[in-house]
Design a protein around this nucleic acid. Structure first.
Lengths: 143, 143
DNA sequence: ATTGGTGCAAAGGATTTGCAGTCTA
DNA sequence: TAGACTGCAAATCCTTTGCACCAAT
């Protein structure tokens, strides 16, 4: 009946704690969004988050979804993954890991951290610090 | 007077040859755009290409810029680099190399291929082939 | 003539913004 | 209550599309 499922795998009190740890005021919609994101490791676009939230009777507007995801990203709760020029993915897995990007269906797939190995890293330009390293392997169906 | 400079480092006949090699009909505007791109290794957005072209009296429309860059990318003449959700960069350097992305000014910087090292690559999902591997190191000014 | 390429303006889609109303602390 | 947060709709920005015109074979 519904292919949009919200796995309620995380207790409200847990996400409230997570939010507070990052100095994020735990409002109703932020908690709601966080519960969706952290139900499991996944990659969701703003649109998908909106759809899932609304699947249970709109509790957050589009603007709030964007505000919230942007805030979470800035506070380090989620990681933005830029691979598709048409949308940003929010990855609920903060741990070091990289991605396959399936160009056929626009899906992201995790690469377990120990399945890839970055040898030496280059020296950074003077006066800069690294914010993060993304490895993206673009894949496509073999004929 | 003009900070948009078109370095005419490549002869028209050379780019025509490059285009033909990839089965691209060398029209006036494609040649023009190719000369800009291949004047030197660089990363340009569609907007920037348009601006440079127009700096010498519009010879190509916005639609043609997008069509042409998309075509070049598909034919493997340039490489699309997706790091900034607000625009796509076209890299005139096809060789294996990776990038720093300066989050402060939105600029791409090449990483010479021998300054980074990808150890083992993970096994690809069944039935897929790799189209390319992008390594992006996001950097930011240190305080 | 026919096919492919170009230009213009309008359409599209994701994200942002302005501002009034609402909630949290 | 004060300041923060939310919602709605309009606005923006990049990119794509539709369609008429032009060019090359």
């Amino acid at each position: 009946m519904e292919n949009i499922v919200k796995t309620q795998a995380i207790a409200k009190s847990d996400v409230i704690t997570m939010l507070k740890e990052r100095d994020i005021t735990p409002t109703q919609q932020r908690v709601e969004i966080a519960q969706i994101l952290f139900a499991k490791p996944q990659h969701l676009s703003a649109d998908q988050v909106l759809a899932i939230v609304n699947a249970e009777g709109a509790v957050a507007s589009k603007a709030t979804i964007y505000n919230t995801l942007g805030l979470f990203a800035k506070k380090g709760l989620v990681r933005e993954v830029i691979v598709d020029p048409t949308k940003v993915f929010y990855d609920s897995n903060i741990n070091n890991h990289h991605h396959f990007f399936d160009m056929d269906n626009g899906e992201l797939i995790d690469i377990a951290n120990d399945h890839i190995e970055l040898g030496k890293l280059p020296a950074l330009p003077d006066g800069t610090v690294a914010e993060g390293v993304d490895v993206i392997i673009r894949i496509r169906k073999s004929d």
